[in-house]
Amino acid sequence: MELTKIRNWSDDELKIEEVKASEQLFRIRFQAKLGQNEGVKKLRELRKDIARIKTVARERAIGIHGAAPVAVSAAPVKAKKTKKEAK
């Protein structure tokens, strides 16, 4: 899945798709334990898709959308006086 497609989903769609992908991942892991090795590539894809979905959901929860957070100081900023103002 592409990240741009995931970002266009609503919050409800994100939850639904995460549940679907998690269930599918469980089934593929179960099949792998039974000796069916056909889903190895799909397993890797699903793990990455789930991570992408969770990342987008977390970005929305904390209010960022791909931009780096800006550090804000809690201390008030004092204006520096120039030499002329000090006299």
Score class of each variant (00 low, 15 high):
residue 16 I to P: 00
residue 55 T to K: 03
residue 32 A to L: 15
residue 39 G to P: 00
residue 87 K to P: 03
residue 14 L to S: 01
residue 15 K to L: 13
residue 77 V to M: 03
residue 18 E to H: 12
residue 58 R to T: 10
residue 52 R to G: 02
residue 55 T to F: 08
residue 72 V to L: 07
residue 50 I to V: 08
residue 44 R to Y: 07
residue 14 L to Y: 02
residue 11 D to R: 14
residue 34 L to T: 09
residue 64 I to N: 05
residue 71 A to G: 01
residue 19 V to L: 02
residue 64 I to L: 12
residue 18 E to Y: 10
residue 40 V to G: 02
residue 5 K to Y: 13
residue 72 V to K: 03
residue 86 A to S: 09
residue 62 I to E: 13
residue 27 R to I: 09
residue 27 R to P: 00
residue 33 K to A: 12
residue 62 I to A: 00
residue 12 D to W: 04
residue 17 E to W: 05
residue 53 I to M: 12
residue 55 T to M: 07
residue 42 K to D: 15
residue 30 F to M: 13
residue 38 E to I: 14
residue 49 D to S: 10
residue 24 Q to D: 13
residue 8 N to E: 15
residue 44 R to C: 04
residue 86 A to D: 06
residue 37 N to M: 07
residue 86 A to F: 08
residue 34 L to H: 09
residue 25 L to A: 04
residue 82 T to V: 05
residue 57 A to I: 03
residue 74 A to T: 11
residue 24 Q to V: 11
residue 28 I to F: 09
residue 66 G to D: 09
residue 68 A to Y: 05
residue 59 E to Q: 08
residue 35 G to L: 09
residue 58 R to M: 09
residue 78 K to G: 03
residue 84 K to P: 00
residue 24 Q to W: 12
residue 53 I to W: 02
residue 74 A to I: 11
residue 48 K to N: 15
residue 22 S to L: 14
residue 38 E to R: 15
residue 67 A to I: 15
residue 85 E to N: 03
residue 15 K to H: 10
residue 51 A to F: 10
residue 25 L to E: 12
residue 85 E to A: 14
residue 56 V to G: 02
residue 14 L to A: 02
residue 66 G to R: 06
residue 59 E to L: 03
residue 65 H to L: 01
residue 38 E to C: 04
residue 57 A to D: 06
residue 40 V to H: 11
residue 31 Q to R: 09
residue 54 K to I: 08
residue 6 I to V: 14
residue 31 Q to Y: 01
residue 87 K to Y: 10
residue 56 V to F: 03
residue 78 K to L: 11
residue 31 Q to G: 05
residue 21 A to M: 05
residue 67 A to Y: 03
residue 24 Q to A: 15
residue 29 R to G: 12
residue 35 G to A: 07
residue 70 V to H: 07
residue 59 E to G: 06
residue 48 K to S: 14
residue 2 E to Q: 13
residue 65 H to C: 05
residue 47 R to W: 05
residue 61 A to I: 02
residue 71 A to H: 09
residue 27 R to H: 11
residue 64 I to S: 05
residue 46 L to P: 00
residue 53 I to H: 03
residue 66 G to N: 11
residue 50 I to A: 06
residue 84 K to G: 00
residue 21 A to S: 14
residue 4 T to N: 13
residue 43 L to S: 12
